[in-house]
């Protein structure tokens, strides 16, 4: 049921993804602000299928050299490729950043016991500026294998980027910067090198007061 309705290939389901800022208010209280968030509830048969986006429309926003989006897509499998448009919530209202933690958490599910490698590339004008590679082992739980990347610290580049972005005076200026900022996440099977999920993230700032929002699309070649 996940396939075609969420970020899920035939081998791996993304259950949760969030980038957040956490601040300790007092010894017992933590404030957590979500910049972006995907929390997928279990799909039902009536849920709509994802819309498709032609990968050619976004190629230039991501690295195109060896191991780039085009080469990955050619290798397939085609059901593993997604585009996520985030409306990020930058209303953190945190002035004093001392004691703040910037992190990313994500969780995946599979019917198979694998070792997964998660590569996250931050791109500016389509060129990679930083990459983080993480390896995760499965935990068997309730008849399925879960992979959890828990509170991975955001790199210095991203912390600085967010800091500058949220201090821009107007949303249109933030969106102008975000037009050339993208993230490419590739989750693969460490032992076979098979692509399990490839997610291209693009961003705008949220105009509402209801937190981060997102749309998910299938990437296809028309």
């Amino acid at each position: 049921l996940w396939q075609g309705r969420g970020v899920a290939s035939s081998k791996l389901w993304m259950l949760e993804f969030s980038a957040f800022l956490e601040r300790q208010q007092d010894p017992d209280t933590y404030n957590k602000h979500l910049f972006v968030h995907i929390g997928q509830s279990s799909p039902s048969p009536g849920d709509p299928h994802l819309e498709a986006v032609d990968i050619c429309q976004i190629y230039d926003k991501f690295p195109d050299k060896q191991g780039g989006l085009g080469e990955l897509f050619q290798r397939g499998p085609p059901d593993a490729f997604f585009l996520v448009k985030f409306w990020a919530d930058l209303n953190t209202s945190v002035e004093d950043e001392a004691g703040c933690f910037y992190g990313v958490s994500s969780q995946y599910q599979s019917a198979e016991n694998m070792v997964i490698t998660c590569s996250t590339k931050v791109c500016s004008f389509g060129k990679q500026v930083v990459e983080k590679v993480e390896t995760e082992y499965a935990r068997y739980e309730g008849g399925r294998y879960l992979y959890r990347i828990h509170r991975s610290p955001l790199c210095e580049y991203m912390v600085n980027f967010l800091h500058k972005l949220k201090h821009l005076p107007e949303p249109y200026m933030m969106n102008s910067v975000l037009e050339n900022f993208t993230v490419l996440q590739v989750v693969s099977n460490r032992d076979t090198q098979e692509t399990l999920l490839c997610i291209a993230y693009v961003f705008e700032v949220s105009a509402g007061a209801h937190g981060a929002q997102h749309h998910v699309y299938r990437l296809v070649k028309e």
Partner: peptide, 24 residues
Amino acid sequence: AKPGQVPMRKRQLPASFWEEPRPT
């Protein structure tokens, strides 16, 4: 073909790409 430096607004993307979803 690559769109090059064509602004995102001018690319062939679904209408929903520009509509911030309402919170559920």
